[in-house]
């Protein structure tokens, strides 16, 4: 996983609550057996005026000029500002893959759906939760000021606005460590292989019907 320590980037405000993972990456793109290449189809139904399909050359497709990520001032955005319950719906990890592939590193919202939240951190994205009033204010600032950038420092858990204001955020210690060090959780868990083996032995003894085959 890509490391995350500090990131300064252009902010794109997506003013819509309950953005679901079908909207983030529509189902026709889930047929891929790879983890990469989803960026061009991020928010496909909002971004383009026609229906997309896998393998298409997106350069030839008509763009929706009203969609935030198509506006010239937000080109190159890497911080997504969103509304409540972002990422609800399906568990498809293609959603964070698409966001990451597009170039986003940070998403800020008042709340996120649980499965999406978990999936995002496993792909090097930093998700930050601020209260509604703070998010409202960031929306106003990002919309008012062209070229609005945020400086996000994971180590100190701070977001610094262009005016120099510092906002502190919470992040789970385990997720923070994984992001800072770019750690592979499987490798970490396998350090506890003996504990898993011990548990499995006790579990089998207590509830043998859960184990279909011997050995």
């Amino acid at each position: 996983m890509r490391k995350f320590d500090r990131h300064q980037g252009l902010v794109a405000p997506m003013d819509r609550a309950n953005v679901d993972t079908d909207l983030i990456i529509p189902k026709q793109f889930l047929k891929s057996i790879k983890r990469t290449g989803f960026g061009p189809n991020l928010f496909d139904e909002l971004r383009y005026l026609d229906e997309g399909y896998p393998g298409q050359d997106v350069a030839t497709r008509p763009l929706n000029p009203d969609f935030v990520l198509n506006q010239p001032r937000y080109q190159g955005a890497s911080v997504l500002l969103a509304r409540r319950n972002f990422g609800c719906g399906s568990s498809r990890e293609h959603a964070p893959w698409a966001l990451e592939d597009f170039g986003f590193r940070v998403i800020i919202a008042p709340s996120f759906a649980d499965i999406f939240f978990n999936n995002a951190f496993k792909n090097g994205l930093l998700l930050i939760t601020f209260d509604e009033a703070t998010v409202d204010r960031l929306f106003q600032e990002a919309e008012a000021e062209e070229g609005y950038r945020l400086d996000v420092d994971l180590e100190s858990q701070q977001v610094i606005t262009p005016s120099g204001e510092t906002l502190t955020f919470e992040v789970d210690a385990f997720r923070k460590q994984c992001l800072l060090e770019g750690l592979d959780d499987i490798g970490l868990t396998l350090k506890d292989a003996d504990a898993i083996d011990d548990f499995e032995k006790r579990h089998r003894q207590a509830r043998p019907w859960l184990f279909r085959q011997a050995g």
Partner: peptide, 10 residues
């Protein structure tokens, strides 16, 4: 509960 693909691998 549902999990993502990284967790399927995990």
């Amino acid at each position: 509960h549902g999990i993502g693909t990284s967790e399927v691998e995990h």
